[in-house]
Amino acid sequence: MRIDLTGRTALVTGSSSGIGLAIAQGLARCGAEVVLTGRDPGRLEAAAATVEGAARTVAGDVTTEAGHAELVAAVPTVDVLVNNLGIFGSADPLEIDDDEWRRYFEVNVLTAVRLTRHYLPGMTSGGWGRVLYTSSDSAVVTPAEMIHYGVSKTALLGVHRGFAKAVAGTGVTVNSVLAGPTHTGGVEDFVRELVGDGPWEEAQREFMTRYRPQSLLQRLIEPEEIANMVCYLASPLASATTGAAVRVDGGYVDAILP
């Protein structure tokens, strides 16, 4: 199969590192013009330099209404929207206060809702488009050490399903990717927080054994492996897949259905 996104513009939020950057790199290799977003202009420019093909950047905090307005003014329309931006971290469930719950929903859910609401009309009027959300295995298997994160990712599944219904029959598809435990800088810090210091391979193995024993892969997923699925779902080849939560979780979710 050949994924060809030549002539398409793709916006990837939270793309200065990790999964977002891998997605941007993958979409660019497929021929798309990629727009990277992030709060730090320096990191964003450094990330864009690693993208092979047409790439531009828009720096700003898209979790705020002002940052959202700046982004959509700079990039009024896109063909592919990848809502990848998200925050995560461990916390005692009984110690998570209302402000922290609101912060997780503002960043992980409402930011994606605002962008979807803005870009969907242009896609539907053109008869083609792709909206994708980076969700998580934690949306289905809520982790005890970060239920605020898990619940925010569960909410995204309802968001994508609802928007998919709203654009039924238009040629636009809306899907989520259920990413499993993935090897990023942030996850390395998270692993260290839970299992302590020591050689990385040992720390990773202890983390998977103690905190993610359901994984059939028995290792962290690489960002490029998530990006491969996103590129497929963003392509014309995935024209019959919409309203779906597609798993790239290393078999972590113990279910026989997607």
Rank of each mutant, 00 (worst) to 15 (best):
Y232I: 07
R2W: 00
T50L: 10
A46Q: 15
L11C: 10
V107N: 08
R114E: 07
A73N: 05
A203M: 13
T184E: 13
A54L: 10
A227N: 09
T170P: 08
E145A: 14
T64D: 02
G243C: 13
P76R: 03
L257T: 10
P213T: 07
L11A: 06
P258M: 09
T9W: 06
L233N: 08
G122D: 02
L157F: 07
Y211P: 02
R205L: 12
R219Y: 01
A112R: 05
T182W: 02
F88Q: 14
V159P: 08
N83H: 07
G150E: 04
T111N: 13
F190M: 13
V172L: 01
I147T: 14
A28F: 03
T170D: 12
H183G: 01
E188G: 00
V80W: 04
G53H: 06
E45D: 14
D189R: 11
I19A: 02
V230H: 15
D79W: 03
G20C: 11
G42T: 14
G7I: 04
L44W: 10
V80Y: 06
E65H: 13
P213D: 03
W128R: 02
V35L: 07
A66L: 08
W200I: 12
V174A: 05
V72R: 02
R29M: 07
R205N: 03
E193V: 03
R130Y: 11
A227R: 11
R43P: 03
W128A: 08
I147L: 14
M146N: 15
R219M: 03
G60M: 12
S125H: 10
L257F: 06
S215G: 01
E106P: 04
V58A: 12
L36S: 13
V151P: 04
A166Y: 01
T134P: 13
L120S: 08
E193D: 15
L157R: 06
S125R: 14
A168F: 02
S136W: 11
D98Y: 07
G20E: 06
P258G: 00
V113L: 13
Q214L: 00
G14V: 04
E206W: 00
R130T: 07
R117D: 11
G18S: 07
S215T: 14
A55T: 12
T64E: 00
S15E: 02
V72H: 05
R2Q: 03
F88N: 13
T50V: 09
V78S: 09
V80A: 02
P76Q: 03
V151T: 14
G42Q: 12
R247E: 08
R39K: 04
V109D: 14
R130G: 07
P121M: 12
T37P: 12
V151G: 00
G53M: 04
T242K: 06
G18P: 09
F207P: 05
Y149N: 05
L257K: 00
T170M: 12
G198C: 11
G18D: 04
G26R: 15
L217P: 02
Y119P: 08
R8L: 09
T13E: 13
D4R: 09
T50R: 08
V113C: 10
I226D: 07
G251C: 01
A245S: 15
Y104C: 09
A255I: 06
H148R: 05
